[in-house]
Design a protein around this nucleic acid. Structure first.
Lengths: 205, 205
DNA sequence: GTCTATAACCGGATAGAC
DNA sequence: GTCTATCCGGTTATAGAC
């Protein structure tokens, strides 16, 4: 592992990500971002001019990898089985690396939906792909007659929700035991794949 | 419908709910709450002393009905079928009435988990109930061998996620067409019930 | 590019008249 | 109980030296 020397700009982005994701744009303080980056507060303005512009940069850089990952799996899967396994596996890996990302994105989306309309467009996500895949297998009588759109939402919901709701699940279900929650997350990929297949395939073992 | 005359205190609570739920505690402005209630800003402090205390009141009043609804269904269901149907039906009704509530609760939970530990306790939610129900039917060989905890999380995720992610789903999947999204939500109760049953029951039609 | 000092602003909270 | 006026702390943003 090479000890990477970060430029000032990179240091700012790194710490800004950390602070914005934890506190949201309103809760974040420029001072805290500066402190965490080990630089002076006014340098933030020198590099990014305003809090809003810094936030925009952080949001894009956070959102894009997620959209890319989803998009890539959807594009490259030849059948519905591969799609489910690939999507859940890769998405959970991504979420484990960035557990607070879904909450951050959902929060800022709700606060300011316009901010990311163009981000969605630019990620050229092809939603018809899964509909195609599901339709093919449905024609072959292997699938139950569920609406493909609901199935897509289900798969994403099953992956994302535990991360968004970590505090409440940990409190309610695991008596605030973080280790038990992590164990739960570790089992999650296999569980979701089995659960979804069991739901949608006819005569699934 | 009786035209209810709200006291000043009630008017404040009503508008504070609306503003806090839309903006979060950090984004909310006392001035905006006062404007929406049609009263003077300093009256907020006369009635609730501080923004934090006002927020606490709003949060309890928002969170409790949700906890109560969940708790009631869990307690009163004699078997797993009734539980799934009752839970999904009642929960979606609740969410349709308060579409921004999940996002609000999840956001404030992430920002400040301690704030509601006591709320969770006071709702005396009995999590062992569903485990019992699932274990009984599992013994009777009617159920597949899924971990009950995952199933509980799955059901909640399938209900809650579309509401938390409304802007992103509407943008991605429905080309920003609100009516299409509402149609999707209308189908949701029946879909989730069918999907979950199909996943967990052996030889489900 | 980086720092110190400070301006400009905003928002929660209070004082006090009515 | 309700209002107007004001305070005061904190936060973003800028000016200017180095």
């Amino acid at each position: 592992m090479v000890k990477k020397i970060e430029s000032t700009e990179e240091k700012i982005i790194t710490s800004a990500k950390s602070v914005f994701i934890r506190k949201g744009i309103d809760g974040a303080r420029m001072q805290e971002i500066a402190d965490e980056a080990g630089i002076n507060k006014s340098l933030l303005h020198y590099y990014f001019r305003s809090k809003d512009k810094l936030f925009d940069r952080v949001f894009s850089e956070s959102f894009l990898p997620v959209a890319k990952t989803i998009s890539r799996v959807f594009e490259s899967s030849p059948d519905i089985n591969t799609l489910i396994e690939g999507f859940v596996t890769n998405y959970i890996i991504l979420l484990r690396k960035n557990p607070h990302l879904p909450h951050f994105i959902l929060h800022e989306l709700n606060r300011n939906p316009e901010r990311i309309v163009e981000q969605i467009q630019s990620s050229n996500f092809n939603k018809t792909r899964i509909v195609e895949l599901l339709s093919n297998d449905a024609d072959a009588n292997k699938l139950k007659a569920f609406d493909p759109i609901h199935i897509v939402v289900n798969i994403i919901a099953l992956c994302v929700f535990p991360f968004v709701a970590q505090p409440i699940l940990q409190g309610f279900l695991f008596n605030d035991n973080e280790a038990d929650f992590q164990k739960f997350i570790n089992e999650r990929t296999q569980h979701i794949i089995a659960f979804v297949k069991s739901a949608i395939f006819i005569n699934h073992s």
